[in-house]
Write a protein that binds this DNA or RNA. Structure first.
Length: 458
RNA sequence: GGCCUCGUGGCGGAGUGGCUACGCAGCGGACUGCAAAUCCGUGUACCCCGGUUCGAGUCCGGGCGAGGCCUCCA
């Protein structure tokens, strides 16, 4: 089935055809590692992880190369280091580790590459020398600038022309900038900045600008032209526009990325997420209260391009949806899975510009079907549920464990449930109900069935 | 001001011209000792106003409303 993706270049869905089906390449802008990731930061990794899984399914797991960078040199990191007195590397290593753990908890596969900016300074310098040699960059007092008027097509992705950009009052003409739209490739070191954020270069001692790292790392890991580049829609301008400018000007006009994908924003209870409003929710904090899979389900419950309002109700509902799906699997615990292809309807939904809500509807339909299926159909349905879930990074946990949570007091609950079964057999319903009520009070729900009783934590 | 999103039933959320997705909640029923889980049934939904069309949530125009970006924020 062909994959269709909304390409920001065209603002419409296009059939995705990689330049080389044996090596499909995708790059997604990763985090600046100076603090915890918030839930909005988690949307691109989750969304593009689903795309990664879909591409692997279609082109083969060994034929998809996926890179997500770590930005480990940046003004904010320097600020953080100066505030806390901690070395830069201590900060970046710590938050890189936390980020990896958080992303794993959300069920994301490990990308093929996680390049660090500081490990590609040489690549950046090579790219900048190329740009300078070709007349796209010039040296100023405060660093090396990319000269925007040197590129005719600048602004194509964001559909901005130069006048639009300059019209914004916030654009300042730096003392050594030739054009207000020019942006920094290399920033000269300032007094008092730590040595760990300084590198020698033909353009003086300094550090890379914001966008050059992505151009350099994408080239180093994936090549001069990549198939898919993803990120949040706030990055369209200027970040991605600048990446395009750097890469395409350095590479003689070869396209930098063939398909640009951008995800929409999260709001928090209908409000913009911002530090000043104090409504920033960190993945790390959310994981203390919710299973990572619930967060993932919530992030996938809306189409990636649209907005998503993050609320407690959304999380409750996401958990209820997972409960229902896991309940269906749990009823088939002893069914031997048939090795099947992921369900066609679900694949079709994902192939249609990653329509995850539609795909989830397919899972739900399968669960209903499984719940009323004859035994002969169950191996297939269980297989489809698991295969479909795997394509979305869902439903891979043991259903019993999902229902029972950590097993620390499972034995005690099992004993009470057994006691209740005995009471019911003896028609001592008062006692049976008492046990059920007691368990309900501590959040344990009993489900009676023909083959006995099971329980789950609510 | 410029560019770009979005506006669907009580809630979440699909739908890219015609066959009223799906889930949660509610209601009715089945099952159950009673429940829960599960199954079945159940909803005068498409921001407003024009237009195109035999037919529009879906296309076009104009409003209104919410949001994002406009030099380093996913």
């Amino acid at each position: 089935m062909e994959i269709r993706l909304t390409n920001t270049y065209a603002r419409e869905k296009q059939v995705f055809e990689p330049s080389d089906p044996d090596r499909v390449t995708m790059y997604v802008c990763g985090p600046t590692v100076y603090s915890y990731a918030h839930i909005g930061n988690a949307r691109p990794p989750v969304v593009f992880d689903v795309l990664y899984r879909l591409l692997r399914a279609k082109f083969g797991a060994d034929h998809v190369v996926y890179a997500v960078n770590f930005t480990d040199v940046d003004d904010k990191i320097i600020d953080a280091s100066q505030e806390t007195g901690e070395p830069i590397s201590t900060i970046t290593q710590r938050y890189e580790q936390i980020y990896r753990e958080d992303m794993a908890a959300l069920g994301n596969l490990e990308p093929t590459f996680r390049p660090r900016a500081t490990e590609h300074i040489g690549d950046m310098i090579a790219l900048m020398e190329d740009l300078a040699a070709k007349g796209h960059a010039y040296q100023g007092e405060s660093g090396l600038w990319f000269h925007v008027p040197s590129m005719e097509t600048y602004g194509r992705l964001s559909k901005r022309n130069r006048d639009d950009m300059i019209a914004g009052a916030r654009v300042e003409v730096g003392a050594d900038k030739k054009d207000p739209a020019d942006f920094a490739l290399w920033k000269a070191a300032k007094d008092g900045e730590p040595d760990a954020a300084k590198w020698d270069s033909p353009f003086g001692v300094g550090r890379p600008g914001w966008a050059i790292e992505c151009s350099a790392m994408a080239k180093a890991k994936l090549g001069e032209t990549i198939d898919i580049h993803g990120g949040g829609q706030d990055l369209i301008f200027p970040h991605h526009e600048n990446e395009i400018a750097q890469s395409e000007c350095a590479h003689g006009g070869k396209p930098f990325a063939r398909y640009w994908l951008h995800n929409g924003f999260l709001s928090m209870d209908s409000e913009k997420m911002s530090k000043s409003l104090g409504n920033v929710k960190l993945v790390h904090q959310l994981l203390e209260k919710w299973p990572g899979e619930v967060l993932r389900m919530a992030l996938l419950s809306a189409h990636y391009r649209g907005p998503l309002d993050w609320t407690d109700a959304l999380l409750e509902q996401s958990r209820a949806t997972l409960d229902r799906l896991y309940n269906a699997l749990r009823r088939m615990s002893d069914v031997v899975v048939e090795d099947v292809e992921p369900p066609a309807g679900l694949v079709a939904a994902l192939c249609d510009d990653l329509n995850t809500p539609q795909a989830l509807a397919e899972l739900s339909r399968l669960a209903t079907e499984a719940n009323k299926a004859k035994d002969a159909d169950k191996p297939r349905l269980k297989g489809e549920l698991l295969a479909g879930g795997a394509l979305m990074g869902l439903l891979q946990q043991d259903p019993d464990q999902w229902a029972r949570g950590d097993d620390s007091d499972a034995a005690r609950i099992d004993a009470l449930v057994a006691e209740r079964i005995a009471a019911r057999k003896a028609k001592d319903f008062a006692k049976a109900d008492q046990i059920r009520n007691d368990l309900a009070a501590e959040g344990v729900e009993i489900m009676d069935g023909p083959q006995g009783s099971t329980w789950r934590k609510v």
